[in-house]
């Protein structure tokens, strides 16, 4: 299939950036979106031009590295998919496709389609962990957790930190990411001792990084490759309210 691509090119953080148009022939419908970009880069190299920089790692939909705005949709038109798992059969021969990086102030563009998601790491550093005596591995059954709790925690833990939630949010908010990390640890006994310090710290950092606030639109869940639900945001809000009111006892 033949494609008309409009790709964001930006040489560095300082560069203002611009769109450039490319034409690409002989794209297999069975190739992934990233393989299509590999093909484009081979063509650019043959023409002795700079290839398009884009993030990728596992190409299995589990690492959270890839993430592109494709025709205005984070990770493209198929729900519950990362870009690497998006296949070209979802496009038609002769399609015009606009490819942009995440546009969030807290994700500065490093080059072309690559953004710096260090802001997510700094949110995690404020509480996305548990303090635990390390050493020999504990007996697996020493802390019993009900199945439904584990399942809920696992639903939140599937977050791969790709940033699509903030990218698709009309407010540029990192609320779903932060709520997923808080929800993951907050549903497990190991996460309880730091539960309320965690929510205060992570929300404070989320605001300090320059992300917007949540207005309950739900765009984040719609584009999330792991389809993490809005209930985690409600839970985070409840924990936050309890923490500021000092009602942290059970």
């Amino acid at each position: 299939m033949k494609l008309h691509l409009r790709v964001w090119r930006q040489s560095s953080v300082e560069d203002r950036g611009r769109f450039e148009d490319y034409e690409l022939d002989d794209v297999s419908p069975d190739s992934s979106f990233l393989e299509m970009l590999d093909l484009l880069n081979e063509q650019l190299l043959e023409q002795r031009k700079m290839p398009v920089a884009f993030d990728h790692d596992c190409r299995e939909g589990i690492c959270g590295m890839c993430g592109l705005m494709i025709d205005g949709m984070a990770h493209g038109p198929v729900p519950g998919h990362t870009v690497c798992q998006l296949h070209m059969r979802h496009f038609k021969d002769g399609d015009h496709i606009v490819i942009e990086p995440w546009r969030v102030a807290a994700f500065p563009v490093i080059q072309d389609l690559v953004v710096d998601r260090g802001s997510f790491d700094r949110i995690l550093q404020r509480g996305g962990f548990i303090s635990f005596a390390t050493g020999t591995a504990p007996e697996a059954n020493s802390i019993l957790i009900p199945k439904d709790r584990v399942d809920t925690a696992m639903d939140a833990a599937t977050c791969i930190g790709c940033g699509a939630c903030a990218a698709a949010c009309p407010n540029g908010s990192a609320t779903l990411f932060t709520a997923a990390k808080i929800g993951h640890l907050g549903h497990l006994p190991q996460g309880q001792p730091e539960r309320y310090r965690r929510v205060i710290g992570m929300v404070e950092q989320m605001d300090a990084e320059g992300f917007g606030g949540c207005t309950n639109v739900g765009a984040c869940t719609s584009v999330c490759p792991k389809e993490i639900g809005q209930d985690f945001i409600s839970q985070m809000n409840r924990d936050y309210l309890r923490a500021v009111l000092g009602r942290t006892g059970d």
């Binding site: 705005m69 942009e100 969030v104 102030a105 698709a168 407010n171 917007g212 639109v217």
Partner: peptide
């Protein structure tokens, strides 16, 4: 205050944007 924060969170808009929900 929240509107201002939202505007500052995305100083540069998308050339093409599809509102995913709402």
């Amino acid at each position: 205050a929240l509107t201002r924060a939202a505007q500052q969170a995305r100083p540069m808009g998308y050339a093409k944007f599809h509102q995913a929900s709402g």
